[in-house]
Design a protein around this nucleic acid. Structure first.
Lengths: 352, 352
DNA sequence: CAAAGTTGCGCAAATTGTTGCGCAATCTCA
DNA sequence: TGAGATTGCGCAACAATTTGCGCAACTTTG
């Protein structure tokens, strides 16, 4: 790599970068002709195009997207903000986003908010500064208002939410039917014969946790089971919250026989807490989680959970963005895509 | 958001984007003055700066990084290519990369090669097209040559490898001391009293798998244990490879009593295969993995593994990139950063 | 053989922002 | 009060590319 380059040769092989101007000079034609030749414009003769393409290859010409973007007012950049990419879910969503976006010629800028509004605000600034053409965002757990997104709207930049949306906001979004997920899961537990079913939920200002809880309530009502507030434990959906939830439930005079957790992490925390106390799953307490994290099929027993169609969600989000982008500006009324959840029944919830 | 904007008001609030030219016109000063005012140039009076800043805020002026980058020949974009972000490892590395890069004012462009050279080649094109100022890459499993990186070098774009490096290549890289990891892990098994230790390895053209195997061999030799080729099983390091490995080992006339796997995935596959056959871990066969994936502390028994200091690796990679960037061009000789692995002893390898 | 049409390419402006240089106005001090 | 220094700002070039318009030269048609 560090071999001395020979500056006597012509062309001066890759001193640094070759620009469209260099091509033009060496060929003795104008810059515009080169530009048109490279973009296969019809009004350029095939002979000229061949010459241009040949030299471009020789000089390892790399078109400057920045300059092109500047001129055309397009950056071909798409911004994404996720709370984190630690788990299974957002990772796969991002994968889905990437594939579709790349296919559409977009580069993806990924930011993590670390579940923190302040960070999220910073991310927005960063992305706007990078001149992204759109922003896809899943809210951090601590986001409770919408002000930092107003700047995005003012600049007429397409904004699509996915998974986590602020409640009651009229924005484009692709979400899972979390209510159906909660319902399916709880109903499954009921059908397995469990009667006193607890619920571990997350912050209720986030649609996903609110809806999962609502689905849980729906199922109970449908089967004429009472709703006991004592059995509903709201936390932060981490492993320790699951463990705390179990401690809370077992301290009750009359503990439940099953738990529907709105998160796999809380569920696995619960599983460990139960094992520590020498209790068996599902005999002493059945468990069902949410998200189909990798580890759910590796625990013992394996955890019943809900698959969220992560990749589809990412793909749908990008498609929605592209639609908004294609729309004559301003005429796009917010649209929602709702994905169907998929119940995965495993050992942790199968009555024996 | 869709409320009709009032075009009578002055300034015409956010018709679309305000450019530096708009600011200049409204203030009746030149563009250059505005530019300098915004970047806090000393030769602009405070009074003028105040006026500019005030209007900039009012018009929600967003500086166009693309234009600035074009002029200054800097994109402030950093490209990253990872095989995937499914697991624990790359996810955390990316997190480390992000934090340091953001602090240095860079935006991060993340690409996944999906363990496929062709994809990797495409990623390179994408990143070069986006005018990144540097590329951080961890090779895909199927990458066996270096040609697609030559283009990067020719353009004098800093290139830093992390974790997975092509063997015998003189490039800048930050890697784990995988040999030490393999050694520590195997030695630990020996110290626990295991004597016939098998090894599950990955593609040997990748430094990480070659070195882990070497460390394994080192430990055996040090303790005068024979190396049996039958006990070394090279595969693709997925769960099914671990299961296949176990099938292979159990079919031997004299099966081993422990396995050092170069991957947690293969280790957990092995664990499941053993359980299916009614064998106990670690009594019938001890297991040790590599990478400290999330699930290793959730299986039963919990898996002994090696922590790879993922975040540190990402951070180190960015720092190395920044150093190269700061260097007067061409004068940077390839440098390596080596991180120390950390053995995490858990139940799967503790003799009883 | 001239008028009209087609083909192939160049000129120049435009996109947004940075920067070296220079010019005028004000200030300093003898 | 006038020479020199300082301050504050504008002019114009520049970065890489796209694009509308127009101009030649060549081909076709009447």
């Amino acid at each position: 790599m560090r071999q001395p380059l020979c500056f006597f040769t012509l062309p001066p092989l890759a001193r640094t970068k070759a620009s469209i101007t260099d091509l033009a000079q060496q060929l003795g034609i104008s810059v515009s002709t080169v530009s048109r030749a490279l973009s296969n414009h019809p009004s350029i003769s095939d002979a000229t195009k061949q010459r241009v393409w040949k030299l471009a290859k020789e000089l390892h010409y790399q078109p400057n997207h920045l300059a092109a973007g500047l001129r055309k007012g397009r950056s071909k950049l798409l911004g994404v903000i996720v709370p984190h990419i630690d788990g299974h879910f957002f990772t796969l969503v991002v994968k889905g986003i990437e594939t579709v976006a790349t296919k559409a010629g977009f580069n993806v800028l990924i930011c993590q908010s670390n579940e923190d509004v302040a960070h999220e605000r910073q991310n927005i600034e960063t992305l706007l500064g990078a001149q992204v053409e759109g922003i896809l965002v899943s809210l951090s757990r601590t986001t409770r208002d919408f002000r930092h997104f107003e700047k995005v709207q003012r600049q007429q930049i397409p904004l699509v939410f996915f998974d986590r949306v602020l409640d009651g906001l009229d924005v484009s979004a692709v979400v899972l039917d979390d209510r159906a997920g909660g319902y399916q899961s709880t109903k499954h537990l009921i059908q397995q014969g469990y009667r006193r079913i607890a619920h571990f939920g997350g912050p209720q200002h986030l649609n996903i946790y609110k809806d999962r809880r609502q689905g849980y309530l729906d199922a109970l009502r449908e089967h004429d089971l009472p709703v006991e507030e004592d059995l509903i434990h709201i936390g932060n959906m981490k492993m320790e919250d699951g463990a705390a939830g179990i401690a809370h439930l077992l301290a009750l005079p009359n503990p439940p026989d099953a738990v529907f957790s709105a998160s796999d992490f809380a569920a696995v925390g619960a599983l460990q807490a139960l094992k520590q106390r020498g209790l068996r799953v599902p005999q002493d307490m059945a468990l069902a989680g949410f998200s189909n994290e990798t580890f759910t099929s590796l625990t013992e027993p394996m955890l019943t959970t809900i698959d969220q169609r992560c990749e589809q969600m990412g793909q749908a989000a990008v498609r929605l963005f592209l639609e908004i982008l294609a729309e004559p500006s301003g005429d796009f009324s917010p649209r929602r895509v709702v994905l169907r959840p998929d119940l995965l029944v495993r050992d942790s919830s199968q009555a024996v």
